[in-house]
């Protein structure tokens, strides 16, 4: 069974159809790329899957369980975390704090255990520290642990955003243009990181405009156009699909 199933998902905004009857599966451990021209509904699709938007109709299943319309934090707790297109972080805090917040949902200490420093609080603290160090190492930012987000470079911020999403031990991670606005060398670093995420057994769903990167990374590709699913298949199939070439690749991939 697929990890994530999207069935007949539709979202309308006051007469405008952002996502129209889209169906696809994401298999466990794969990298699935979602591509399409601007305004094709890619980000809306992510917002629907992660619970930020409620679909007009259709369903989303995680491991067979219906998660349609759940609150974003519930969906995150069930195992889907995400990054945003415009890099968003907790920019008033330090790098390590950002990651600790990402792991917060796996800890249980609430008000009373915090006040009395109970055993659970201490365990949670140990667990969080360990996880933060682990993720710092994973995203290669150990030496930046105590830096404030505002002092980081663009590329480091992108890495950290991915790290925050990874900290909570998700089953699947949704990356919305993880290299948007980066220069080529920096893009390569992020590409390596995404491969590493896959190697760690985490399913990746990716929105990306850079075609060579998508062709390199993706196991399968879903193409959206004006909110509709235009095609689905391996990079090889997509790059030879006449409809896709017509609508999208014809302009950019060849060039």
């Amino acid at each position: 069974m697929s990890l994530l199933q999207v069935e007949n998902l539709t979202k309308r905004f006051e007469g405008l159809v952002a996502v129209n009857d889209v169906t696809f599966n994401v298999d466990r451990g794969e990298i699935l790329a979602i591509i399409g021209p601007n305004g094709a509904g890619k980000s809306s699709l992510f917002n629907l899957v992660s619970g930020i938007l409620r679909p007009t109709s259709g369903r989303v299943f995680l491991e067979g369980q219906d998660i349609t319309g759940l609150k974003p934090h519930r969906i995150a707790q069930m195992g889907i975390t995400r990054t945003f297109q415009t890099t968003t972080l907790f920019n008033q805090l330090r790098v390590a704090d950002n990651l600790a917040i990402g792991y917060r949902m796996r800890t249980a200490s609430g008000f009373w255990s915090t006040i009395f420093h109970t055993r659970r609080w201490k365990e949670d603290r140990e667990k969080t520290m360990a996880r933060v160090l682990e993720v710092l190492d994973f995203i290669g930012m150990t030496d930046k642990a105590f830096d404030f987000v505002s002092t980081l470079s663009q590329e480091e911020q992108k890495r950290l955003a991915i790290g925050v999403a990874l900290a909570g031990e998700p089953k699947a991670i949704l990356l919305d243009e993880p290299t948007g606005g980066l220069i080529q060398e920096d893009t390569d670093g992020i590409t390596q990181l995404i491969k590493k995420i896959k190697a760690a057994g985490i399913t990746v769903c990716l929105i990306e405009h850079k075609m060579n990167m998508v062709m390199d990374l993706a196991d399968r590709i879903v193409v959206l156009n004006y909110g509709n699913k235009l095609a689905e298949g391996t990079p090889g199939e997509i790059s030879t699909n006449p409809a896709v070439i017509e609508a999208y690749l014809g302009r950019e991939y060849v060039a």
């Binding site: 995150a76 907790f90 008033q92 805090l93 917040i101 917060r104």
Partner: peptide
């Protein structure tokens, strides 16, 4: 502080 700083992101990481 996560709520103060960035509520949508806090929600997206399970808070």
């Amino acid at each position: 502080m996560s709520v103060r700083n960035n509520e949508p992101l806090a929600e997206a990481v399970g808070i």
